[in-house]
């Protein structure tokens, strides 16, 4: 087991190196220039050259790349080109925390609705509630953000006046309602179907029949035996979602004015803020690799039948 984990972790630097090289090259050789963006319509060749020199942008490509990787390995992500004087690490962590709170709220909605619903319709297998719930969940999942956000805003902000129309106040601010629903609802369908299948699987097991024959009440069997065992595959799925925590949601964040990492990432691309683009790409890539590993490891811990060599 440990050997397996270490082997997987050894791949991480290689993957990051590949991802960083590709991202770095795209920035340096693609169109656009951070110094021009910095100077706006006050561009002057002499000033631009001077700033390029100070930022090290006039050096050979490989020297720039090598330096970046060397500093990155030491935990120095550099200084933002757009937010002058601001360390990239602080900026990125702050924005990721905003997106993470949003993702947590969305996950609460996905889980809060998806799990009970899946559990419930598993008990109604073959009856009308079963296909009806799944259909509704699938339809909701298919609604694009560009439609769901205006619809939710119209309802909660303009008609019901429950929340301000945009903005951000953190996890415990009512303004999180609209983005959390927008991002949480699509997750319901998947979780419902997964929970339904998993519950049906458990319901057919011998130990459930045994529990019933011992005379344990229906409620106790459901809560103690069925629900708990049905959760096992869900836990592993959640490990994957961890990576999604920090990747943010560009469209939702932009429309609703949430200062999250998704919006920040896209703005950084438009502004050619290379250090920020690099940091977000690398942290994101690293997070996905680790989350994958975590999911694999979680399987092994939860399900004794799985062993890694």
């Amino acid at each position: 087991m440990w050997v397996y984990i270490v082997k997987r972790l050894l791949w991480l630097p290689l993957l990051l190196l590949a991802a960083s090289f590709i991202t770095f090259s795209l920035g340096r050789f693609g169109p656009g220039d951070p110094v021009r963006v910095m100077l706006g319509n006050r561009y002057d060749e002499q000033t631009a050259q001077r700033i390029r020199h100070e930022l090290g942008l006039d050096r050979p490509f490989l020297a720039q790349y090598g330096d970046y990787i060397w500093n990155f390995a030491q935990g120095d992500f550099g200084e933002s080109f757009r937010y002058r004087g601001q360390p990239v690490r602080d900026l990125v962590i702050r924005k990721m925390w905003v997106s993470a709170q949003l993702a947590i709220a969305a996950m609460v909605i996905s889980l809060g609705v998806g799990l009970p619903l899946g559990f419930f319709i598993a008990h109604r297998q073959g009856r009308w509630e079963d296909p009806a719930s799944v259909t509704v969940a699938l339809v909701l999942m298919s609604v694009p953000v560009m439609v769901s956000v205006p619809a939710l805003l119209w309802t909660f902000c303009l008609k019901l006046h429950w929340v301000p129309c945009s903005g951000w106040g953190g996890l415990f601010d009512p303004r999180i309602l609209v983005p959390a629903i927008t991002m949480g609802v699509p997750g319901i369908a998947g979780l419902t179907r997964l929970m339904r299948a998993s519950t049906l699987d458990v319901l057919g097991q011998d130990f459930i029949r045994t529990a019933h024959s011992k005379g344990i009440g229906q409620m106790t069997v459901n809560s103690r035996h069925v629900f708990r065992n049905a959760l096992i595959p869900i836990v592993t799925i959640l490990a994957f979602s961890l990576a999604g925590l920090i990747s943010g949601a560009f469209i939702t964040e932009t429309i609703l004015g949430i200062p999250g990492i998704g919006r920040f990432a896209v703005e950084s691309v438009f502004d050619r803020d290379y250090p920020v683009i690099m940091a977000i790409t690398l942290i994101g890539a690293g997070a996905f690799v680790l989350a994958n590993l975590l999911a694999d490891v979680a399987y092994a811990f939860i399900d004794p039948r799985i062993r890694y060599q």
Binding site: P164, C165, S166, G167, P259
Partner: peptide, 13 residues
């Protein structure tokens, strides 16, 4: 306030 938001709504609130 840097968090952004719908300015008119915030003003009225």
């Amino acid at each position: 306030n840097l968090a952004g938001g719908q300015a008119m709504a915030m003003y009225e609130n």
